[in-house]
């Protein structure tokens, strides 16, 4: 089972917590909104990905099974 990070851009307000917790897969654009790597989350980053998801204040970041 692989999981991918998906951001709901409508909910996202650009708090930026996710990029601090998972810089390997999430960077912020020049307006502070996340650019998310849509590839499957490697096992080594699984914990950080979960932390990033739960840190999102607007519930915009999710891990979707693919």
């Amino acid at each position: 089972m692989t999981e991918r990070l998906v951001v709901n851009p409508i909910e996202c307000d650009g708090h930026g917590a996710c990029a601090e917790l998972l810089p390997e897969m999430i960077t912020l654009d020049e307006w502070g909104y996340p650019i998310v790597d849509g590839r499957p989350v490697p096992p080594a980053l699984d914990r950080d990905a979960r932390a990033a998801v739960s840190a999102c204040p607007t519930l915009a970041l999710r891990l979707l099974r693919s």
Binding site: P9, I10, G14, D29, W31, Y33
Partner: peptide
């Protein structure tokens, strides 16, 4: 609604 569209 979406940050990148709104700003870009």
């Amino acid at each position: 609604q979406c940050g990148p569209c709104l700003n870009g």
